[in-house]
Design a protein around this nucleic acid. Structure first.
Lengths: 168, 168
DNA sequence: ATTATATTTCAAAAATATTTGAAAATTCAA
DNA sequence: TTGAATTTTCAAATATTTTTGAAATATAAT
């Protein structure tokens, strides 16, 4: 396998994987490209390599920065901005987990709490079962979210290191 | 809040959440509906409640069954098929984790392995960095996948229960 | 202050994904 | 078997998401 072939395969695959996870293809591809690039890349470089428009590149670079998983860099003497990826994978995982928790899990928790406690006066079988199920779901999602938080604190936490070892 | 309002809110929210996670809206809505329904529902019931077509219902019910998170049930004397959701939330989490691992993580691992070890003869800085990064990524994703596996085995495993407790 | 360079914005176009509905296939009671 | 009830399939229609590209905005060197 030639280097460029391998790089391409990696970038494409990462893009496809991203879209399965609700992240758009270009965003995942840009991230993949920056992950394997030893040098910071300019917007031009990225447009060129991925064959995408300026607007597309601009918007997705911003989105990646909002997620906190890529950074801007300035080169002395250069007018352009350059970008690099967070390359510490633990740090990357933490940021992604935090971002998804904030965007997706927290709002879901709010709704679950509202609906599980919000129905008054209705004593029907349906209403009772509904309250029961949604409240269980609330507890469960809350527990899962807490667990993510705990795992993301792992690095500083000796007991979690132990846990990791046990889990192999 | 009235019961039907609450139910509707829940089903809608679950649908929206689903699409953020790469699961289509109807599929997530059907699942939500079955989760909170005390009785098995027929395809007609579901079409009625969610205002969707027969084809849509049929396809998404099948997809949910493929995920192993809903089941068919037959009522004596009834010709129709009825559906119920897996209501044990631990079991649900296990199935979802297994399914995503199978569909998304395993194929990604394969590509990572291929590309991280597949580039021969190229001694350029780029090629070396690429091999390094993708190989780190392979180890990382593999570890994450193993951890998911471990967590899904928790129920029978006393030490993991302890871990859960420690994690609060 | 002017101009050249770089980035962002956003409406329209293109690409993807989902949904519909009617025809085909299946199932089972008579 | 036959045929009514039910489910599945899939091409076409709709809806949603992503991408483009050109104009607007920002930045910085002269």
């Amino acid at each position: 396998m030639e280097f460029n072939e391998a790089k391409n395969k990696f970038v494409q695959t990462w893009g496809a994987l991203g879209s399965q996870w609700g992240i758009n293809k270009t965003m995942a591809q840009i991230h993949a490209l920056l992950m394997v690039s030893p040098e910071p890349l300019s917007m031009e470089d990225i447009m060129e390599e991925l064959q995408i428009s300026r607007g597309n590149a601009s918007m997705n670079l911003r989105a990646l920065m909002d997620w906190g998983i890529i950074y801007k860099e300035y080169k002395p003497g250069e007018r352009k901005e350059f970008f690099i990826a967070e390359k510490d994978l633990d740090e990357l995982a933490v940021k992604i987990a935090q971002e998804r928790s904030k965007r997706e899990i927290k709002p879901a928790l709010k709704v679950l709490k509202d609906v599980s406690t919000g129905v008054k006066e209705d004593k029907s079988k349906e209403a009772k079962h509904f309250a029961e199920q949604t409240s269980k779901l609330y507890d469960f999602v809350l527990k899962a979210d807490n667990m993510i938080e705990k795992v993301t604190e792992m690095k500083e936490n000796w007991i979690s290191r132990l846990v990791m070892k046990i889990m192999k």
